[in-house]
Design a protein around this nucleic acid. Structure first.
Lengths: 201, 201
DNA sequence: GTCTATACGCCGATAGAC
DNA sequence: GTCTATCGGCGTATAGAC
């Protein structure tokens, strides 16, 4: 067996794993973790049988765990990038908000996973999402803004509640259909409310 | 059998039903609906066996359904009362916020049920909570404030996202332990941020 | 109306052929 | 590494004695 074939096989396997993750993400966020059976995931990930999943994941929880890690890591990387490219916390927050709104429109499952699902209900051993790297970095952005005198707030936690309370609530209403237009439609409004609430004037 | 005995029996039965509901509320909000078995509920509600629950409820879902209805109805009644006793929307909102914060400190399970649980995951046939009477009435309060010129907002939905985004996010952080003090500690701060964000100046 | 026993189904997980 | 078959267990729900 030459290198080419080996590589192809590995790619195949990667793809299969990826298909499982994608299908699981969709089903978990649609029906919930406990309403989704491995058979459902197998079917949705294309012609595979439930047993085959165990070649890629130790068990059902590991699928959710991998999803969680993947989402939180991607977010964390994006936030690193945003912090690197922007100096002012207002600009950083602006871009984070933009990211969240775009994700809501173009990858709603991801945002549903973060905002709607009760992650610790099926991943009891994971840290709460507020303690994940991604959200710690968001708190750092707020902290930076407070230190720089751009943001008024007792502490970054409080600033988070105020600022992201508005952002997340808006997005959650979009995701659950209470707000009926695309997230994009509400972005400017939500940004203004959220930012005006914490900016030092 | 005289009337006294009959009455006592009925009270006994009411109490048993109540014990089941209380135990279920505690367990559902602690571990989640799907992680709670009828055996768990039976044990927590005192010396009863799982089978006995079926004398009081048709099935597990009905317990959750009864809880949901009870919570939403209680809220709805409280809000009616608040609206009756106050004219200005600012006063009405003030009291609603006060209610939410008090519930968070003194009946956290109730607030966890509302804010943390994914109700439609285990009650797929119920309307989303935003369409329940209680929350429709909250939207009316906001609508009243907009019409009276007290609140600036494009519509009550948008005002809701902004105002209750801050309130609910704060309470959620308290309920999940990210904010470590009692809800009461954050109330004035949250109220100011939330109200300042929607008041017309 | 409470407890014992038990039925039944579903789903997660494993074993083994190919 | 995928499919077939199957196990084992849990958890809901029912039946029947008392």
């Amino acid at each position: 067996m030459d290198k080419e074939t080996k590589k192809e096989q590995e790619q195949e396997k990667e793809k299969a794993r990826d298909d499982i993750l994608r299908a699981a993400l969709k089903l978990f966020t649609e029906k919930g973790y406990f309403n989704t059976s491995l058979a459902d995931i197998a079917e949705a990930s294309g012609a595979k049988t439930a047993a085959g999943i165990y070649k890629h994941f130790k068990n059902k929880q590991e699928i959710a765990s991998a999803l969680y890690e993947w989402i939180v890591n991607s977010l964390s990387i994006s936030i690193d990038d945003i912090r690197r490219r922007n100096r002012k916390s207002s600009d950083q927050l602006r871009e984070i908000v933009d990211l969240f709104f775009r994700l809501t429109d173009y990858a709603p499952e991801v945002m549903r996973f973060i905002l709607v699902l009760n992650i610790n209900e099926f991943l009891p051993d994971e840290k709460p999402i507020m303690e994940s790297q991604a959200f710690i970095k968001i708190l750092r952005v707020l902290h930076g803004g407070i230190k720089a005198g751009e943001i008024k707030a007792a502490d970054s936690q409080r600033a988070y509640c105020s600022f992201f309370g508005i952002i997340e609530n808006t997005l959650k209403q979009v995701l659950t259909g209470t707000l009926t237009k695309k997230a994009d439609f509400y972005q400017n409004d939500a940004w203004s409310s959220a930012w005006d609430g914490i900016v030092k004037t």
